[in-house]
C-alpha cells in the first residue's frame, strides 16, 4: 500500500516534469522563467506566441490524447480479460481515420477533426447496433475488429481513388500521426471530449475488477454487462475519436502502457485504468518531444511512426512470451 503511494507519486511527478520539459524545451531557446511568464501573457511577444499558440496546446493535447489512449487500453484489456487488447480492437480509430481521410479526399482540410469525430461516433453507434443485447465481451471485440477491418478497407479504397498525388500524400502523412498541427482550437473539443471519455472509463473500473472472475460470476456479483458495455464503448469512442481527430493514428500506446504498469503496480484491472491514463499522458508527451528532437530541418519524424516503432517490438515480445507461457 505504502509502496503504491510512492509509485503513484513518482508517476505524477514524472508526468509533471515531462509536461514542463515539453513547455520549456523547443527549437527556440526560451529560459524557463521567461517561458513561464510567456505562458501567462507576459514578456516578449514572440515568446508569448510560441508558448500560448504552440507549446502549451501541443503539450495539453499530448497529455489528453495519451491519457485517453492509456485508459482505453487498460479498460479494454480488463473488459476482454486479454492483455493483447488495445484501443484499436473496437475499430473506432479506424472509423475516425476513415472520416478524416474522407475529408482529405474531398479537400475539406479544415473539417478533418469533425469528420474524424463523426467517424468514431458512427462506428460506436454501429457497433452497439450490431452487438445489441448479445452482451459477451468476445462478441463485442469480434464485431469491433470486423468494423475496424471494414473501415480500413474503405480507407484503402478512398486512397485508391485519390484525385491526385498531393491528396494521397496528404492522407499518407496524416495517417502517420502527429501533434504538429495541434493548435489552441483543438483544445476546445479535444479536452472536454477526452475528459468525458475518461470519466466513463473510470466509472467502469470497479466492474472491470469484478470481471476478473469471468462474466458469469461478475454478473452474479451485481455487475450489469449492458451498462458496462455502453460505458466502455462511449468512453473508448470519445477518447480515441478525439485523439485521432487531433493527431491522426497513434498506435500501440494503449497496448503497452497498461503492461508496463502491470509489472510496476500489480494486475488489478480497476487500478490500471487511472494509472494508465497518467502514464499514457506522460509517455505521449515524451514521445512527442523525441520526435521534435529527432526531426531536423525538412525531415519530420511522425509521432505515430515512433510509437509504433517502440510498440511493435514490445507487442511481438509480449505475444511470444504469452504463447510460450
Amino acid at each position: 500500500m505504502a509502496g503504491r503511494t510512492v509509485k503513484l507519486s513518482l508517476l505524477i511527478i514524472a508526468t509533471i516534469l515531462i509536461a514542463l520539459a515539453s513547455l520549456f524545451i523547443g527549437s527556440t531557446d526560451i529560459a524557463p522563467m521567461a517561458a513561464l511568464k510567456a505562458m501567462f501573457g507576459q514578456g516578449e511577444e514572440a515568446h508569448i506566441l510560441i508558448l500560448q499558440q504552440l507549446r502549451l496546446p501541443r503539450t495539453l493535447l499530448g497529455l489528453a490524447i495519451g491519457a485517453g489512449l492509456g485508459a482505453s487500453g487498460a479498460a479494454l484489456q480488463g473488459y476482454s480479460r486479454n492483455p493483447l487488447a488495445d484501443p484499436g480492437v473496437l475499430g473506432f480509430s479506424a472509423c475516425a481515420a476513415l472520416g478524416a481521410v474522407a475529408a482529405l479526399y474531398f479537400g475539406l482540410r479544415t473539417y478533418v477533426p469533425l469528420f474524424a469525430l463523426i467517424g468514431a461516433g458512427l462506428g460506436a453507434t454501429l457497433l452497439v447496433a450490431l452487438v445489441g443485447q448479445r452482451q459477451r465481451a468476445s462478441v463485442l471485440i469480434l464485431a469491433g475488429v470486423g468494423l475496424g477491418a471494414l473501415a480500413t478497407a474503405v480507407t484503402g479504397l478512398i486512397m485508391n481513388f485519390a484525385p491526385n498525388p498531393w491528396a494521397l500524400s496528404e492522407i499518407v502523412y496524416w495517417m502517420m500521426g502527429s501533434l504538429r498541427e495541434a493548435g489552441p482550437s483543438a483544445l476546445i473539443y479535444c479536452l472536454p471530449l477526452t475528459a468525458a471519455g475518461l470519466i466513463a472509463l473510470f466509472i467502469t473500473a470497479p466492474d472491470l475488477r469484478t470481471l476478473a472472475l469471468g462474466e458469469d460470476t461478475a454478473q452474479s456479483l451485481g455487475v450489469s454487462l449492458p451498462r458496462l458495455q455502453i460505458l466502455l464503448v462511449s468512453g473508448v469512442a470519445l477518447c480515441v475519436g478525439s485523439g485521432v481527430a487531433v493527431a491522426g493514428a497513434i498506435g500501440f500506446v494503449g497496448l503497452f502502457i497498461p503492461h508496463i504498469l502491470r509489472a510496476l503496480i500489480g494486475a488489478d484491472p480497476a487500478r490500471l485504468v487511472p494509472y494508465s491514463a497518467l502514464a499514457g499522458a506522460g509517455f505521449l508527451v515524451l514521445a512527442d518531444m523525441a520526435t521534435r528532437a529527432i526531426s531536423s530541418n525538412g525531415a519530420t519524424l511522425y509521432l505515430g511512426i515512433l510509437t509504433s516503432l517502440i510498440g511493435v517490438p514490445f507487442f511481438l515480445w509480449l505475444a511470444t512470451r504469452k504463447m510460450s507461457s
Binding site: R209, A212, G214, T217, S220, G222, G266, A267, D268, P269
Partner: peptide
C-alpha cells in the same frame, strides 16, 4: 440480488495475477 444469492461457477480461469486476498475480496463487490 447479489447480496441475497451468491453464485459459485465451475469456471476457474483467471487471467490476471491477482493475489488470493484480492480475489476473495471481490466477493464483497455487492
Amino acid at each position: 440480488r447479489a447480496r441475497t444469492i451468491a453464485y459459485l461457477s465451475q469456471q476457474r480461469d483467471i487471467v490476471w495475477p491477482l493475489s488470493v486476498r484480492e480475489i476473495i475480496a471481490l466477493g464483497r463487490a455487492p
